Computed example of a mutant assay.
Amino acid sequence: MRKRLTPYLLLVPQIILTLLFFIGLCTGIIQSLGVIPAFDLTEPTLQYYKEVLTRPDMLTSVFFSLYIAFTSALLATVAGVFLCMLLVMSDKAKGLMMRIVQLPITVPHVVVALFVINILSQNGFLARCAYALGMIRDQKDFPVFIYDTHGMGIILAYLWKEIPFIVYFTIALMANINNNLGEAAVNLGAGRWTAFRKVTLPLCRNTILSGFLIIFVFALGAYELPLLLGATSPKALPILAYIQYIHPDLRHRPYAMALNGIIIMISLLCAVAYFILMKKNIKGLSDKK
């Protein structure tokens, strides 16, 4: 009897956390529609979403977050696939090299932000080196990489962790395909690079796109790096949502939930795309069998 109950008992913490998550999600969606009885807001409305998508300050934050997320995800995917290709082609997809590649994944984003500040700020390590070498007259002449309106510091910090993630996410499949179908193409007369480009890479496409979606959604909803490395304006969506949430006027809370609702909707679209890609991957593996 105890053995039969054990699996269900082990699921209890997961069920509780799932329920709390869905309760919070539903509460946030309801509040984003302007329904907060404690604040005398009882009529559902899409006015808050409309204002978020029309007010210049909030719309700028939406575009800024999309820009940061898309740019960092795209650059990380391209660089990660290129690095993955080098590792696979040099037969270093396992062992010490992979341990080194995976190391940045374990570093928290707050620590990465401190690294970026100490290295890339105008009084950081690189600025001091450039000044000592006579490349710049003053440390203020060093290019602005952090706290800038283009979010360069945020993007660079994301790349620190996202490039190794793409490598870790795709290298097992890429190495397996290259060692089987890729070698078969080489035996039939194709060059190694041609076989990789026309055989291995297309077969890894869905997995690569899945990795892109994961890091895109993460960067879109992340709070730490935009807070620590971002400019005063524009603000990323999660930061603006938090500011609206703690606003002294509690009637601003639906704005915060509407901003979060936009993140949720984009994340759901990415989740659907991810599900479709994974379904194609599973179908492709079953067809091979």
Rank of each mutant, 00 (worst) to 15 (best):
L250R: 13
D141T: 11
T45K: 07
T54D: 07
L66R: 09
S32R: 03
V186W: 03
V12G: 03
V217K: 00
I246G: 12
R2K: 12
I246P: 11
R253M: 15
I146D: 15
S65N: 01
G151L: 09
L259W: 04
K279Q: 11
V78H: 03
K50W: 14
T18C: 15
A273W: 08
E224Y: 02
E51S: 07
F145D: 10
K279N: 08
I282H: 04
L181A: 05
H247G: 00
Y158F: 14
H252A: 06
I263K: 01
I154T: 02
I29D: 00
I23L: 12
I146A: 14
H247F: 01
R99C: 08
V12P: 03
F212I: 04
T71P: 00
L240C: 05
P202S: 09
P164A: 05
A190M: 13
A231H: 03
A241I: 11
I177Q: 04
L9G: 01
K50P: 00
G230M: 15
L259G: 03
F63I: 14
R137D: 15
L33A: 05
L25H: 07
A184E: 10
K289S: 02
Y131C: 06
A38G: 14
D40V: 05
L9F: 10
P13S: 12
L83I: 14
R205C: 09
I68N: 00
Y245F: 04
I214D: 07
L103H: 00
Y67C: 10
A132Q: 13
S121E: 14
F70Y: 03
F196E: 08
L19Y: 13
Y8F: 10
K289V: 10
I215F: 01
L269E: 01
F218C: 02
F275E: 08
Y48I: 10
A273N: 14
P248V: 00
P13E: 07
R2F: 15
I29M: 12
A76V: 15
M152Y: 11
S32M: 09
L181I: 02
G189W: 08
Q31G: 00
I16E: 11
D40T: 06
I215E: 06
F125D: 04
I15F: 06
G80E: 08
L87Q: 07
K288S: 12
F165C: 06
A69M: 04
L213R: 00
L33V: 07
A130Y: 10
P104W: 05
G284E: 13
D138Y: 12
L188C: 09
F125C: 06
L5T: 14
I215Q: 07
G230I: 14
K50N: 07
L83F: 12
G153C: 04
N187I: 08
A273D: 09
I215H: 04
L229A: 01
L156A: 14
L120T: 13
C129H: 12
I264A: 09
L228W: 04
P202G: 01
L41E: 12
T170R: 04
L156F: 08
D249T: 01
